[in-house]
Design a protein around this nucleic acid. Structure first.
Lengths: 169, 169
DNA sequence: AGCAGATACTTGAAGCGTCAAGTATTCGGT
DNA sequence: ACCGAATACTTGACGCTTCAAGTATCTGCT
């Protein structure tokens, strides 16, 4: 067992700031979505993912993976979204165990109404705060981090892409 | 009211990855702390902050601000930590309304036991995943982001400047 | 065919965080 | 000195997430 390699002073400074960002940025996003759209960040992500999907529908397990959440979490969420009429559940025809979540028109409308405000916040808190060079660096850094965070063999359904965070338009 | 400035394809790609990091990295940290030390990331942060403080104690409101949490959240947390014997509450002598949280020896020991594993994870997920150059860039980027997330004069009412927030305009 | 085990999803309980309201105590203008 | 307003913290209820268990369906081995 090796002795712990503590962080250097410089690393600590950087890690402290990173932790703050990891706390404050999601907080701001959650707060805005909650206030303006009565949605969680996870809920918004799920609706947005559905909006980009062919037929505005996805298998539950796919959806959970795409939104980086557990199956249980998604199940509870879809239950709530269903009660609000934003999503509908249908049985999968190719697999009797499965379920597909379908975005309703009301759900799409709600997402479309929420998107502009959310995108504006993302722009003001992130992209407007960084230089173009820093934005590029952020892209590289997050890609590097994800190699450790999203172990290979986890994203089988990366066929789609090209979608938009907000809604098609 | 301006038309929404949507994210470009490049920005979307970067934002998508950033969101994933914002979700997965805290998840990993929380999971490790929960499993190995029965602590939340917030709980760990509070204990760590207390450990560094003079007298291993801090006013509740200071502590909440340093750990980037609300006063209510801290109050609930300290209640739980107190029940486990890791923290003790004392009345502030200079201000009858105030409270100081004090880290007990048991609390310090628990933190000391948890730290090596946590630091090891941080190292492996973040610092080992990035080049030295990227680590420096991460430091600069987080510093830039924090100028928007943690306004310097955020305590009293300082009029907002810099443009459009999401909701208002 | 039949049965064990994997897979897809759901459910209920428990913990944590937020919000709104409540209790003390201190500050500040008159 | 006094009274209303601000401050420091607490409390309770409610919503969301996790964890462990439960149900239903499918798959593969014999």
């Amino acid at each position: 067992m090796e002795p712990t390699r503590w962080l250097t002073d410089g690393e600590q400074e950087i890690w402290r700031r990173t932790l703050a960002v990891l706390t404050l940025l999601p907080n701001e996003l959650e707060g805005q979505l909650q206030r303006d759209a009565d949605l969680t960040r996870f809920g918004y992500g799920v609706l947005a993912t559905l909006a980009e999907a062919p037929g505005r529908s996805r298998r539950m397990s796919e959806l959970a993976a795409l939104a980086n959440g557990s199956q249980s979490r998604l199940s509870h969420l879809v239950g709530r979204l269903e009660r609000r009429g934003w999503v509908r559940r249908e049985r999968a025809d190719d697999d009797g165990r499965g379920c597909v979540a379908v975005l309703t028109d009301a759900g799409y409308a709600h997402l479309a109404a929420a998107a502009p405000g959310h995108v504006a916040l993302v722009r003001s808190l992130v992209f407007d705060a960084l230089t173009p060079t820093q934005v590029t660096q952020l892209g590289e850094i997050t890609a590097a981090l994800l190699t450790r965070l999203a172990p290979p063999g986890d994203c089988p359904a990366s066929s789609d892409h090209g979608g938009s965070t907000a809604d098609g338009r």
